[in-house]
Design a protein around this nucleic acid. Sequence first.
DNA 1: TCTGGTTTCGATAACGTTCTCGCTACTATT
DNA 2: AATAGTAGCGAGAACGTTATCGAAACCAGA
Lengths: 335, 335
Amino acid sequence: MTRRLTTIKDIAKALGISVATVSRAMRDTYDVSAETRKLVLDAAAKMNYRPNFNATGLVKSGTHKIAVIIPAITNYYFSTVITGIQEYALEQNYQVMLYLTNDSAYWETKVVRELSLSSVDGLLACITYETADFSHFEELVEADMPLVFFDRVPESIKTSVVVQDDYTGACMATEHLIAQGYSKIAHLAGPPGLNLTQQRLQGYLDTLKKHNLESYGVIHSGFSDENGRQDISILFHSASRPDAIFSVNDRKGFGVILWLREQGIKVGEEVGVIGFTNDPTSKIISPSLSTIAEPAYEIGRKSCEVLIRHIQKQSYPTQEISLPTELIVRESTQR
Amino acid sequence: MTRRLTTIKDIAKALGISVATVSRAMRDTYDVSAETRKLVLDAAAKMNYRPNFNATGLVKSGTHKIAVIIPAITNYYFSTVITGIQEYALEQNYQVMLYLTNDSAYWETKVVRELSLSSVDGLLACITYETADFSHFEELVEADMPLVFFDRVPESIKTSVVVQDDYTGACMATEHLIAQGYSKIAHLAGPPGLNLTQQRLQGYLDTLKKHNLESYGVIHSGFSDENGRQDISILFHSASRPDAIFSVNDRKGFGVILWLREQGIKVGEEVGVIGFTNDPTSKIISPSLSTIAEPAYEIGRKSCEVLIRHIQKQSYPTQEISLPTELIVRESTQR
DNA sequence: TCTGGTTTCGATAACGTTCTCGCTACTATT
DNA sequence: AATAGTAGCGAGAACGTTATCGAAACCAGA
């Protein structure tokens, strides 16, 4: 009825040797003769032996598993980050457990709290835009659980973080708009609690100031294209219309382009639009969307690498890694 | 140095009772008094106790983990399926381990073979389009590992499967094109090895036959928009040009629309295009893409549900579930 | 006061590994 | 020929939990 797997004991019994020898033969060749080792390995293959990770994990505390906690995966950025994480983890023989918070602080707390500390070696997290209280993460840090944040990082917790250079990216975007001759620039920002939002906002503001321009509006809202539509319509119903939009991400930029198109306003020629992410859809939408490309895949790999370093050496110093972004010019910022 | 977690023993010692009592108090109230139970629970909370899943998994063979093996997650369909899986799993207190094969049969085999049979309770898989040899899955079935396939399913292995109704969806797509007045219809199909490809192709062919029309071309290739561009250009350089395209998925349809637009051919008016998936980008592209919507989220939930049923009752009969699709009419099929 | 039945708890053996000893047998050294 | 050293292996404990069995404590009925 319940499936019975071959264990190390079965091999020992079949070969008439002790379990200790089998165990040794299984991994390092140290302290076992070449012939017994071969005998054991052959028997193991024949009997279709697979190690029981519960048992090994119990004795040497250390499962080869890492948990990834992320708001969602149904968008280009997050799914690409996960791909990077997954690939690096697999290369290093670590396995990935996936937890989706759906951008709910409640679920995030629940998932983190219920996470068995003994079932993973470390944690890779990207916080909710709701999260204000970080005590569930702080508990983990206190318990010496290796923890690395990426993309959306809390400022109060001192752990390693891996992010893209949001500030410089925002500067590049704003510089580009100005260079293209736009001067009445507004910013559609993200949720105010996120440091990513603040960085991009600051880059935008500083660049305006550098050119002696003033902001034509900043609206904070979510990351969806629907948010973009709403925000742009608010801006265009105000007294001072902008002639360019810097959106905190591409999806919101799509909403802007769609809305402008519906209103018969020529994107690029009349109103410039630039996003952030380099979502593949930004090439497909018409006019195509200029954007700041984020190194999503690299962020995934790098954060996983840092985490595994922390797992393997508890003395590994805390890292703050910022990966460069790149300006991609398309139609939406062409006069 | 290495983090030391509070165990059931620590609680027992602190309270001066036996580990057995603590263990009992932790789960069902059976055989323990209400007061000791409360004592234990309070102490556990105070001492920040977390159960060690390795230990429980060892004694009652059964980790509460399922593995999901999937070609990629950087597209709408797969990421949505995963979201459904994840949500249902979490509701049922199961944890999800994610494995990406990157559509490589080699990696798929490697991942499945190295998967410790004892570290997961069951497996949810979507095969590579390369996979021709299924012995790595068959080995799992022989070892009585619960296994459910979704979306892309091998025909040779007798396990539960959860798919969308590809055949009927393809019929609906073709019927719609015909109803809109198109008659020279071609099909951009998927990789020939996949049953999903065959089902959609068959639905297309059967519907043409029903209306006494003949096919204006079938091309098999991959799922990317680049594949779509290449295929449509081949079709339009042949003698008999089609006036409508049924694409096996939306991404390929995007390539078709982009190419037609570049050639100055009016999509909809001159050439109708319909896809399959209902990727969010199909609303964003211009003209917007008509499509057959797949219940991706539901497929995720349902396949996870079936898997957990199999895990909990080994006598649970093999299921073949097919979820309905829906026609979504947009601009790309309007004259 | 004795019997029989509950209720509540403790000892102890598992689960499948790894790890620490220690023992044997063989080889090398003097 | 006696001793020291080493290679190869086995016995047993340990990891944290659950399960089985039985023991104590209590209560009711006679």
